[in-house]
């Protein structure tokens, strides 16, 4: 029985395992999806962050929000920070600012975002990574 099982598995390996649908999966037609406007995008993520039940969902939403060709609006970042506070995860709040720092194209934009989010950052007591690990 063992021998027949081994033979069967060897036979299975001999056949190249190329899915019939591999070719279809390789192409992602984003144009087929409904493209959101920046306003819709902002409203969607604000709502999603408000409803995020746990840290997993907050981090998933952060990954998704930063995976577009625009920087999320300050309102979205604010809701993300409030969600971090709600799930009591301080490091993710720090990481949100870190992600913002490298998402914007220059230091001036980062400074503008920090200015815009100054109040919420002060209210919640969130440090930046620069403050946690100052460069020697």
């Amino acid at each position: 029985m063992l021998a027949s099982t081994l033979r069967a598995s060897l036979r299975a390996r001999a056949i190249p395992s190329v899915s019939r649908f591999a070719g279809f999966r390789a192409v992602r037609n984003y144009s087929d999806h409904h493209l959101e406007t920046f306003e819709e995008f902002t409203a969607r993520f604000e709502k999603d962050f408000q409803e995020a039940p746990d840290l997993f969902e907050v981090q998933r939403l952060l990954n998704n929000a930063f995976a577009y060709d625009l920087v999320p609006a300050p309102a979205v970042i604010e809701q993300a920070l409030l969600a971090c506070r709600r799930v009591n995860d301080y490091p993710t709040a720090v990481r949100t600012f870190e992600a913002l720092k490298y998402k914007v194209e220059n230091k001036e934009q980062y400074a503008a975002y920090l200015e815009e989010l100054k109040d919420i950052r002060k209210e919640l007591g969130i440090d930046l990574k620069e403050e946690l690990y100052p460069e020697a």
Partner: peptide
């Protein structure tokens, strides 16, 4: 003070625009 290796976007970041309008379309 370097970009982490697991950001969900390439660095340096390339944006569609720095001044999006409400009707600007957002692309993944």
């Amino acid at each position: 003070q370097e970009p982490p290796y697991d950001l969900p976007y390439p660095t340096p970041s390339k944006l569609q625009t720095n001044d999006p309008k409400p009707q600007t379309l957002v692309h993944p």
